[in-house]
Design a protein around this nucleic acid. Structure first.
Lengths: 343, 343
DNA sequence: CGCTTGCCTGTGATCGCTAACATTGGCAGG
DNA sequence: CCTGCCAATGTTAGCGATCACAGGCAAGCG
């Protein structure tokens, strides 16, 4: 037995385009058009449809729409973690850029594990996203294959890969590492040490270290590397680095830390040991996190366009999805050395 | 003309369950079962299906699956922003908890705008998520209605609402504000000021202020409120608060800031003006952000279970989705006052 | 020996929407 | 008056999976 729309809306049944169409006295196709291409529907009809939608509280089922049209209007993003705010701003930039064009973000975090990434990639691709944003890094062969098979635009971020999967938005971590090292040299520091970037560390950290090494090689100086251990306990690692530096008789006059939290830890250890910064030891970080800017630290650092990376990724992806030939597949957003009191 | 599976995989066509079924010599239903309920398929068959899947690189289309089954295995999360790391950890906790159960996260950010939220809610509900997590706060009537209509479990986080939409995981901002105020009193501070929590500020900030006011009322003391302005420029607001405090002749001996960044700004202003902390002025914050812990600030603050909120939200949601009667619909995770040097 | 029982598998019929094509009617131009 | 075209709407056939319901076949039992 047939129910009226009013009845249906009061019981559990979900309201479909059918219901709207019936109420507006048109076919479902017209409703669909009124929603997706309003200019192809006569003014009066459109109005009737709109009213019906409002009256019924109809919410289009985008899952069904996606299946039917083959476009999901979803973009997936894969990051290692949102904590410590490295990617958080980028993701913010992404959602903002996507929302404006009716896309939504499916977020996956890998927790720094390559196998987790592999599983996640498969799961995420199963949602048939129209595009995908991924923090550049090492991917397993299976991951690369799966991504290629998906045949959707892919944006790698936060570095400019040698062998891009497709598009890329970021900056060169190597160049940035080199530039900061050269800047330190330019400011007169002679013995420049580097903390972090161990093999076990993130790819980006290693790249920064590579830049550091390249710069020193060019300057004909001897690198002073200090292992710091990866991840979580970054501030502790920075403190440890300063201790190591004191223990070794190698006496550096500048310490380039792989990231701001490490640098913050280093600065605190200096304060504890009454090492004057920057007079006895200059300290610089990387990333320009919130902590760096405050007067508490006045940390010299490399500012990277975190939010912009997300926003531009969204933009370039949307271009690609619109079928426009993308201008430059690899966008270098650069970086900026910000000199504050610590160096 | 019929193509073999091998050919199909080399041209553009997408590999479907059909292809797998054909190759394994079974029906699609068996493939579906081998994936979703392996124990209902004979060992040998299951193995053949598994091989076919691997050979073809088949990735199940979860969009089609969702439409068909009515379950999307997607949970949506709505936050105001990921920046300044308030929600970032919570979202991390969420993804971690969800991933373990095969759910994925659709992320929306509202940018603090109620209308944006309204639009976002409709868009997100169109994806037919199985559940939804939302940062508690004020919602427009339309939003509430849409959420109720969706008939899916909803978890509000970061506060315990009076009139919950369904489930809730968080802590009481009012209680936390009161507790910190009472703690300050207990430590011997007489004139306790509060910075932030203006009407224009976030709901949570206002609730903390309410707690502060309630505590002072109970203690029979006069509140000293300092407007701080909402949002972005939190550190600047903190600095301004200290200035205001100096200008007024009301002399407070403690300043309770609505959030850690505000407190950090306040501490820096004190340092600039050579106001001894905590001897001349105690300063406390809220949230236990990264900046608070470091030796640079040694900020006394209220620690809230950011990651846990996400993790528990995931857990409770999954329970609800499994059809289990949820134990307690409102989970109070509490908070903890962390005393460091600043008070 | 026939009939139940239970395991494994297959057969349509959807799920709610959109692409592609078909249809209608009105109006301009010859 | 007929043709042709365009604008507005409708019709049909899927998209790729899952659900509910059958069947088939072996073993078990009286």
């Amino acid at each position: 037995m047939d129910q009226t729309e009013a009845e249906r809306s009061s019981d559990g049944a979900r309201i479909t385009m059918q219901d709207v169409a019936r109420r507006a006295g048109v076919s479902t196709m017209t409703v669909s058009r009124a929603l997706a291409a309003p200019d192809k529907v006569a003014e009066a009809t459109r109005e009737r449809v709109r009213t019906a939608i409002r009256d019924l509280g109809y919410v289009p089922d985008l899952v069904a729409g996606s299946l039917s049209s083959g476009r999901s209007r979803i973009v997936a993003a894969l990051v290692s973690t949102l904590a410590n705010s490295v990617f958080a701003e980028t993701v913010d930039g992404l959602t903002a850029g996507l929302r404006a064009h009716g896309y939504q973000l499916l977020l996956g975090s890998t927790d720094y594990s390559a196998e987790a990434e592999e599983a996640l990639v498969r799961a995420v691709l199963g949602r048939r996203p129209d595009g995908l944003v991924i923090a550049a890094g090492e991917h397993t062969a299976a991951t690369r294959l799966a991504l290629e098979r998906a045949r959707i635009p892919i944006v790698e971020t936060w570095d400019l890969p040698d062998r891009p999967l497709g598009l890329a938005v970021g900056f060169s971590n190597v160049d940035a590492g080199r530039a900061m090292t050269e800047a330190l040299a330019g400011w007169g520091y002679r013995a420049i040490a580097f903390a972090g970037g161990d093999p076990a560390d993130s790819l980006r950290g290693r790249l920064r270290r590579d830049g550091y090494l390249a710069a020193l090689r060019r300057l004909g100086r001897t690198p002073i590397e200090i292992a710091a251990g990866p991840g979580r306990k970054a501030m502790a690692a920075g403190a440890a680095a300063v201790r190591t530096l004191c223990d070794r008789d190698a006496r550096a006059d500048a310490l380039f830390c792989v990231s701001d939290p490490v640098a913050a830890g280093a600065m605190m250890e200096c304060r504890r040991r009454s090492i004057a910064v920057p007079d006895e030891l200059a300290i610089v970080g990387f990333g320009d996190f919130d902590i760096a800017g405050g007067d508490a630290l006045e940390l010299t650092t490399v500012r990277v366009p975190k939010y912009e990376i997300g926003a531009r990724s969204a933009a370039i992806l949307i271009e690609a999805l619109a079928g426009q030939p993308v201008g430059a597949p690899v966008v270098d957003l650069g970086f900026e050395i910000v000199r504050r009191r610590s160096a």
